[in-house]
């Protein structure tokens, strides 16, 4: 490896270098799994503001970015983390109080939008959402869309099938490409150049990674040059897309990372309780984000016993006997 190929950075430096005020950001993972939480907490600590966030169903990460006041615009399909927060609480509050502007799509549409970005094509068609308010109702007004170069002039466009009914299809919806300034994903393994191996479901991480102008990868394990290349069938993202690689063990905590650790039900429950009350939420942010200069400090604060309790059974991929009440 040539020295210039080495993309390894400290988390603080990667975030301050690439994620500026007003940045168009997408984060990987899904609801309570493989959200790049260490990076999310670092963005909050750096007090980055006015982020335009793209997500399909990122629950925990998006909710914390909104709760800390980092987000002004959000394009999303789903704000929830399943049982712990059926609707993300700070997201709900921010939309109701109109402190963020949200634009709704479906999960497939958001995935197609990232794929279109990754393909370098302006839009892709689907049949999803025909006849619904996802097409009829817009969060970003037309004027706002016209004024901003980084978002398309229309939310969605319905079009007659130009192939005259081919494939029993009369109409399609065109979904516009997303090309975020930065995507951040958390993966199980990466190497110094940024080759990535994701274990378990990839969600839309690969599309999100390839759609972005810059890609920050946080990883559980940082490996030598040849390790991932010796078993390339298991790798999903080649290094050519990567800009920064950061080793952060438990970097998805408190969300899960398949084969490494489970979600921390106790943390997620405590988070949901705090999120319901503004004062309690400020105390949560102070104690668990601002008072923890690094992710290691957060893990120490939570306690190594708790962290050990969520370690995954390597074969099953989760903590078999974890108390999840």
């Amino acid at each position: 490896m040539k020295p210039e190929d080495n993309k390894v950075m400290q988390l603080k430096d990667a975030v301050s270098k690439y994620i500026k005020h007003g940045c168009h950001l997408s984060i990987g993972g899904f609801t309570l799994n493989r959200n790049p939480m260490a990076a999310v907490y670092e963005i909050i600590r750096q007090k980055t503001r006015d982020l335009h966030v793209y997500a399909h169903s990122n629950g925990q990460g998006v909710d914390e970015l909104i709760g800390a006041g980092c987000v002004s615009h959000l394009e999303i399909a789903y704000g929830g983390t399943g049982k712990f927060m059926p609707t993300c609480i700070r997201f709900k509050k921010a939309v109701q109080e109109q402190t963020i502007i949200v634009e709704d799509y479906s999960n497939f549409q958001m995935t197609l939008r990232f794929l279109a970005g990754a393909m370098g094509i302006a839009f892709l068609p689907t049949r999803s959402s025909l006849g619904t308010d996802i097409i009829n109702k817009w969060g970003f007004p037309k004027e706002f869309r016209k004024q901003h170069d980084l978002i398309p002039n229309q939310k969605l466009v319905v079009m007659d099938n130009p192939f005259d009914g081919w494939c029993d299809t009369k109409k399609v919806v065109l979904v516009p490409a997303i090309t975020p300034d930065v995507t951040i994903i958390h993966v199980q393994m990466a190497d110094f150049r940024g080759n990535c191996r994701i274990e378990g479901l990839t969600f839309a991480d690969v599309e999100q990674a390839k759609a972005a102008k810059r890609l920050i990868i946080t990883c559980e394990e940082l490996l030598d040059d040849d390790y991932l290349k010796n078993d390339p069938d298991r790798n999903q993202i080649p290094f050519i897309h990567a800009d920064a690689v950061v080793k952060v063990p438990f970097g998805a905590y408190p969300t899960a990372c398949y084969r490494y650790y489970d979600y921390d039900a106790a943390y997620m429950n405590a988070y949901a309780r705090a999120a319901k009350n503004d004062d309690a939420y400020q105390q949560y942010l102070a104690a668990y984000v601002f008072d923890c200069p690094t992710h290691t400090h957060l893990l120490d604060k939570v306690g190594r016993g708790r962290v050990e309790s969520i370690l995954a059974d390597r074969n099953r991929g989760y903590a078999k006997n974890l108390d999840r009440k």
């Binding site: 999303i76 399909a77 789903y78 709704d104 479906s106 999960n107 497939f108 999803s128 959402s129 996802i134």
Partner: peptide
């Protein structure tokens, strides 16, 4: 405000 479509609309 609720969670939104997720995959439900699809």
């Amino acid at each position: 405000r609720f969670s939104g479509s997720g995959g439900a609309c699809d």
